[in-house]
Amino acid sequence: MTKDEVRAKWAVAKRMVQITQDEWDSHNVEAQAIKFVKAKLKIAIYYLSQLDEHDSNYTMPFTGNQMKKALKSPITKQNVKDAADWCHQCRLMRDKACTSWSYEEEKTA
């Protein structure tokens, strides 16, 4: 896939995980949990988009519906655990596939 095709494929997911200014400004437990979940999903999407850019075959560790469910309030411990697990799985897939790639790590936080 070209970079433009990858951007188009992941545009909706990236919008869903954008951390709002209110979430950044808030320091309550719920806001911190949603920031964590969104940050992990943002990183997972970055890894998946790298795989797409390099035309790698992979199996999605989560579905769109699972992602939507993980972002619903109130954020539970399971939502946090799922997002962290998916991020880790995506990184492992990327790391396994990237041995021959030439890329620069994007700053995600």
Results as ranks from 00 to 15, higher is better:
residue 78 Q to R: 15
residue 12 V to D: 11
residue 71 L to E: 09
residue 72 K to L: 07
residue 82 D to M: 07
residue 61 P to H: 07
residue 33 A to E: 00
residue 56 S to E: 09
residue 2 T to V: 02
residue 18 Q to M: 11
residue 33 A to R: 07
residue 44 A to D: 03
residue 36 F to K: 08
residue 82 D to G: 00
residue 11 A to V: 10
residue 83 A to L: 03
residue 100 S to L: 06
residue 90 C to H: 01
residue 73 S to I: 08
residue 10 W to P: 08
residue 67 M to G: 06
residue 103 Y to H: 10
residue 9 K to D: 05
residue 20 T to M: 06
residue 49 S to I: 00
residue 100 S to T: 07
residue 54 H to Y: 12
residue 104 E to V: 09
residue 53 E to N: 12
residue 68 K to D: 11
residue 2 T to Y: 03
residue 59 T to W: 07
residue 23 E to S: 06
residue 79 N to P: 01
residue 18 Q to N: 12
residue 86 W to N: 03
residue 43 I to G: 00
residue 52 D to K: 05
residue 57 N to Y: 06
residue 102 S to M: 04
residue 17 V to K: 02
residue 63 T to R: 12
residue 53 E to F: 04
residue 39 A to I: 06
residue 14 K to V: 03
residue 41 L to I: 03
residue 78 Q to S: 13
residue 105 E to Y: 04
residue 43 I to R: 14
residue 81 K to L: 08
residue 47 Y to W: 15
residue 2 T to H: 08
residue 70 A to C: 08
residue 58 Y to G: 02
residue 50 Q to H: 09
residue 34 I to R: 03
residue 89 Q to W: 05
residue 80 V to E: 12
residue 68 K to Y: 10
residue 106 E to H: 05
residue 48 L to K: 10
residue 7 R to Y: 13
residue 26 S to T: 13
residue 107 K to Y: 13
residue 27 H to N: 10
residue 24 W to V: 06
residue 19 I to E: 02
residue 70 A to D: 15
residue 89 Q to I: 07
residue 5 E to Q: 15
residue 97 A to W: 00
residue 40 K to Q: 14
residue 101 W to N: 05
residue 66 Q to K: 15
residue 93 M to P: 00
residue 26 S to N: 15
residue 69 K to N: 15
residue 8 A to T: 08
residue 35 K to D: 00
residue 46 Y to P: 03
residue 34 I to V: 12
residue 3 K to V: 09
residue 63 T to C: 13
residue 71 L to M: 11
residue 27 H to K: 06
residue 62 F to H: 15
residue 54 H to A: 13
residue 35 K to C: 05
residue 92 L to H: 03
residue 30 E to R: 02
residue 60 M to T: 00
residue 34 I to L: 10
residue 93 M to N: 01
residue 87 C to G: 00
residue 99 T to W: 09
residue 109 A to S: 14
residue 61 P to W: 05
residue 82 D to I: 01
residue 67 M to L: 14
residue 80 V to A: 11
residue 89 Q to D: 12
residue 20 T to L: 05
residue 70 A to T: 08
residue 69 K to R: 15
residue 77 K to H: 04
residue 87 C to Q: 10
residue 95 D to H: 04
residue 27 H to A: 10
residue 32 Q to A: 11
residue 33 A to N: 01
residue 7 R to K: 15
residue 23 E to M: 02
residue 19 I to V: 14
residue 56 S to A: 12
residue 61 P to G: 11
residue 36 F to I: 00
residue 40 K to E: 14
residue 59 T to D: 11
